[in-house]
Design a protein around this nucleic acid. Structure first.
Length: 294
DNA sequence: AAGTGGATCAACCGCCTTGTT
DNA sequence: TAACAAGGCGGTTGATCCACT
């Protein structure tokens, strides 16, 4: 049996794309209002490339919404933050950076950010200090303080918001929770896997556990997970999620309004998830120290 | 000017996931 | 439920550029 090859390798061109090939591919996609089947695209266009190669060229280079040029400090910060949460899940990271491709972010990480973290004495995989004597206790203490700060901040946020706005925030938070970021978080805090880890580890550790499949059980996971991913002290965040659950029950099925909300507030939602003290301390990316130390 | 080595990034490869029959 | 097709993803490679000797 075996898998059929993605394309017949014989007679197919490899290597860099020419301007003519780019033009053929771009024109075809524009003319047809989309790429259709990638596999059949080479036949339709006469390109001597396999469908995969066409897809890659389009998604990584020719797509009109691609953002070119160097990464901004904000983008760099976001990449580091998201890598700390998601690990090497470049596509998931790219989904939070409009106009940037997974390939571009992966290259940028491997050529710039990884070195920068190393130079700062941080393990690029774990985002934790490389040589931390009695690291577990000191980091644990530090994390406790950080998490307590997050808790207080969340409580303050809740108390300052009116009902509508609270629901609004809960909604954003829930959507984040339902995204891959939330999946990663839940995986990381599975009772059988990380019984002793707390939310603060979430702030620092990448989640190499791979993709999860439990995309629909997020709220119940929060409310029933024996590991209590938010820790016993963080009632404010729990409350936000419970609030979000109610919100979803009330608005179940109204996808159109949800998508509009999401469109308007993705930054806010992302910020809610990322808004932990450890990632506010990204001073090494700013000012003079922002220059790559290598 | 030529050689060398590091940095960069576009592109490829193979595996995995998802959808369809 | 199994088999297969197609698309997507992450790791890796290799061509090119550039600084340095």
């Amino acid at each position: 049996m075996g898998r059929t090859p993605c394309c017949d390798k014989k007679g197919l061109k490899k290597g860099p794309w020419t301007a003519e090939e780019d033009e053929v591919l771009t024109n075809y996609i524009k003319k047809n209002g989309g790429h259709g089947s990638w596999r059949s695209l080479p036949k339709m266009t006469g390109l001597l490339r396999c469908g995969k190669s066409c897809r890659l060229r389009w998604t990584n280079y020719l797509r009109p919404d691609i953002k070119r040029g160097p990464f901004t400090p904000e983008e760099e910060k976001l990449v580091i933050q998201l890598h700390g949460i998601l690990g090497n899940r470049w596509a998931a990271i790219a989904s939070q950076l409009p106009g940037r491709t997974d390939n571009e972010i992966k290259n940028f990480w491997n050529t710039h950010l990884k070195k920068r973290l190393k130079a700062l004495g941080l393990d690029p995989k774990t985002h934790q200090p490389n040589h931390a004597p009695s690291a577990s206790s000191s980091i644990s203490t530090r994390h406790m303080a950080q998490w307590e700060g997050a808790r207080l901040e969340a409580e303050a946020r809740l108390s300052s918001l009116n009902t509508t706005k609270t629901t609004h925030h809960c909604d954003h938070f829930l959507r984040m929770w339902n995204s891959e970021i939330g999946d990663s978080f839940r995986n990381f805090h599975k009772p059988d896997h990380n019984q002793n880890k707390n939310i603060n580890s979430f702030c620092l550790s990448p989640l190499s556990a791979g993709s999860s499949s439990n995309k629909c059980d997020s709220v119940s996971a929060v409310t029933t997970n024996a590991a209590d991913p938010f820790g016993s002290s963080n009632n404010a965040v729990k409350q936000e999620l419970l609030c979000a659950e109610e919100d979803v029950v009330q608005h179940h099925g109204s996808d159109s309004s949800c998508s509009n909300d999401l469109e308007d507030s993705s930054d806010t939602a992302l910020q809610l998830l990322l808004d932990f003290p450890i990632y506010n301390d990204m001073s090494f990316l700013e000012g003079n120290s922002f220059v790559c130390p290598l």
